[in-house]
Design a protein around this nucleic acid. Structure first.
Lengths: 252, 252
DNA sequence: CGGGACTTTGAGCTTTCTCAACGATGGTGG
DNA sequence: CCACCATCGTTGAGAAAGCTCAAAGTCCCG
């Protein structure tokens, strides 16, 4: 809650009307769902896209709400999570520019989505979107691909949550995040130390890995002590110094 | 492994050529993927379906194999799971007649599927299936629906594995399984005690819930002691005697 | 009726959680 | 510009949940 009080955060969701010309110079034009569309098809989609801004800490959508919209993140980072009545939380994923939000929803959203940084998104009315799908077969195929991909990720996460130790979870998480961080840039994949920025707090990591903040902290300290990683004082910049050993620890 | 030695089990996969007339009297004609198709479309699909039998204990597919096929279960129960190198296992789902297998696959299968009872399936060549998809838009839509549904289930399971206690996991599992068991039959939903048959072993339940067999056994004994359930000697037939209290325990 | 696989229960141990204190960081208001 | 404060991260000690190891009981099937 850096820039805003909690009340202001809720108020800071800004929606603007569709502006198809946005798409032409959109940063995620060639990734995510939109990459499946040619310019003509993109125009059909663009006409029903609203542009939404959500400030850090604000909600994109909330568990239990009627699932009216799909979203496509155009900038920033968000977390998705489910909660139990007593406040326990499980983060099911961290999303970034190009990622699609809302596939895993029935009539109501089954999860909440919160902006971890100031966020911009394209918003689609689910109903209109659904009606247009038959006209955009390549889009529908792309959505199926995305859903399958998420399913694979979800199964990996189930293995992690059900069967891996705290240290193994951290190692898996760091490697996975490093991969995502690097994808898109043209560095040699296997070369030397890898630097990554973790935009989330220890509490977020804990809620993602099914641990507590203290255990996350201890496991990271352990990895640091053993020379697998090094980290800055704040703990948000991490360098993987021994990728091989970290990968062996990750256990899959 | 009741009927067969391990070697025989592997050999007991029987494949027969497409027989479109099968579909007309197929038990799952009106559930699962096929329910999305009219008779004409079904015929297109039927022409590329092989019929496969897998004996109890046999593999439908294995983690790491090239993902050549999709499957549709027509009878029996199967388990899907992922393994770590040292043998730890996480079951990601139990599947029954009408369920679709293979969506969550990239070039290679990311999981194994094993028959828990003698099993019959329809098998589709993924490549041919993919080529036919554009001609079967209702099928593609159905697959997207199925994938989204599985995604919702996966997120619920992540919450369970990451944040619920052993007893909460068991309670959730029993209620969930009871629901599946009853769906299709016309019993009043909220009435009295519910009987369910668990076709899996304690070890399977443990691998599904991220626990050990001992903990599963103890948690079930606890539920029995507290009068929420009763079970037969073998432990495979369970009666939910206090659904309300069990639901409260399930915690979501 | 016998044997292998499965289930249950017990005792002790390990990992992770809980509670608590302290330290560091970064944004805010004086 | 600096001191302050809320938030976040680290570390420690003790508690608890679940795991491991072990033994006995049960069931199913031949």
């Amino acid at each position: 809650m850096a820039h805003h009080s909690s009340a202001l955060v809720r108020a800071s969701i800004i929606v603007t009307a569709p502006r198809p010309e946005f798409c032409e110079r959109c940063e995620v034009r060639h990734s995510g769902v939109c990459s499946a569309l040619d310019d003509a098809d993109l125009h059909i989609l663009a006409r029903m896209a609203s542009h939404v801004s959500v400030a850090r800490g604000g909600y994109i959508l909330s568990e239990g709400e009627p699932a009216r919209y799909f979203f496509n993140i155009t900038s920033g980072v968000a977390k998705l999570y489910k909660s139990l009545a007593d406040g326990r939380r499980q983060i099911t994923g961290f999303l970034r520019a190009g990622d699609f939000v809302g596939l895993a929803a029935e009539r109501l959203y089954g999860f909440s989505a919160e902006a971890m940084e100031d966020l911009t998104l394209c918003r689609f009315d689910r109903e209109r979107f659904g009606r247009s799908l038959p006209d955009l077969p390549s889009l529908e195929r792309r959505l199926l691909d995305i859903a399958c991909h998420e399913l694979v990720a979800a199964q990996n996460q189930m293995l992690l949550l059900g069967r891996k130790s705290a240290t193994e979870r951290l190692a898996t998480f760091l490697l996975h995040w490093a991969e995502r961080d690097q994808s898109g840039c043209d560095k040699p994949v296997e070369a030397g130390p890898v630097t990554l920025r973790l935009p989330m707090t220890r509490a977020d990591i804990a809620d993602y890995l099914g641990l507590t903040t203290e255990t996350v902290s201890r496991a990271l300290s352990g990895l640091r002590r053993d020379g697998l990683i090094s980290a800055d004082a704040g703990g948000h910049d991490v360098v993987i110094t021994d990728r091989r050993r970290l990968a062996r620890l990750a256990a899959d």
